[in-house]
Nucleic acid binder design. Structure first.
Length: 205
DNA sequence: AATTAGATGTTCT
DNA sequence: GAACATCTAATTA
C-alpha cells in the first residue's frame, strides 16, 4: 500500500447535490484515520445514502433541526458521527451545499493499512470479516468516536477519504434497501444501499 | 443454521 | 420514558 500516492477527496466531490451518486462513487474509495500516530485505512465496500428531503429514514428529514443533526446542514466534507443503540458510533460523510442536509453512511470496508491497530481496538486476536464489516465495527476499528462529529474531511490530519485510481465497474454494484430503517415507513423501501457484489467485506450475511 | 435477547446511553417526546 | 441507521453470544431446532 503506497499511502503517499493516494489523493484526498476535495470539496467538489462532497458538495454535489446527488447524494445517491456520491454514495455510489464512494465505493472503492479509501477511508483513512490517523489518531495518535496510528494510521489506519480501508477500502469502502458498502454505503447508504440519506437525503434531507423526502426521506423519513434521515435524521434531518424535511428540515428537522436538533443539536445532533446540525452538522448535516453544514456544507459537504465533514463527518457526522453519532451514537447508535448506546454502543455503536456510526460514521457518515456530510454532502451537498450548506442547508441541504444529506449524508452517506459508511457501512463496511476492506482493511488495507494498520490492521494490527484495528484488531487491537476491536479486541480481536484472530483476523476475520467482523473486523470492519458493519458500521459499528468499522468505526471502532478506525478509532472513530461520536465526539469527533463535525470534523473536517478536507485536511489529511485525523480523518479523510482518498482515492488511489482503483475503479469499480457498474456491474459490480448491488443497489438495494437500507438496513434497520423500518421506522421510516414507505421510505424504508427506497433503494439507497450500495455494496460491491464480489466483496466478502459487507455487513449482511 | 437460524433466531432471539441482552447490552448500553444519547436523543428527543 | 421510548426509540434508536447495531453487534455478539447464547439458545433453539
Amino acid at each position: 500500500m503506497d499511502v503517499e500516492k493516494w489523493s484526498i477527496l476535495k470539496e467538489s466531490f462532497y458538495q454535489r447535490s446527488d447524494v445517491e451518486q456520491i454514495a455510489k462513487e464512494l465505493l472503492g474509495k479509501i477511508l483513512v484515520t490517523n489518531f495518535d500516530g496510528r494510521l489506519t485505512a480501508g477500502r469502502i465496500t458498502e454505503t447508504e445514502a440519506y437525503s434531507g428531503r423526502n426521506d423519513k429514514a434521515c435524521h434531518a428529514n424535511n428540515g428537522r433541526r436538533t443539536a445532533r443533526t446540525e452538522v448535516m446542514y453544514r456544507s459537504g466534507g465533514r463527518a457526522y458521527i453519532y451514537l447508535c443503540y448506546g454502543i455503536h458510533h456510526l460514521f457518515n460523510v456530510v454532502t451537498n451545499q450548506h442547508d441541504q442536509a444529506d449524508a452517506v453512511l459508511i457501512r463496511a470496508l476492506e482493511p488495507l493499512v494498520g490492521i494490527d491497530s484495528m484488531m487491537d481496538r476491536r479486541g480481536m486476536t484472530k483476523m476475520g470479516y467482523p473486523l470492519t464489516a458493519g458500521p459499528g465495527s468499522l468505526s471502532q476499528a478506525l478509532g472513530l468516536n461520536y465526539n469527533m462529529t463535525g470534523t473536517s474531511l478536507l485536511e489529511d490530519k485525523t480523518m479523510w477519504v482518498a482515492e488511489d485510481g482503483f475503479t469499480i465497474e457498474k456491474e459490480e454494484i448491488i443497489k438495494t434497501t437500507r438496513i434497520g430503517v423500518g421506522y421510516a415507513g414507505a421510505d424504508a423501501l427506497l433503494l439507497r444501499r450500495y455494496y460491491l457484489k464480489n466483496s466478502p467485506w459487507i455487513s449482511k450475511k
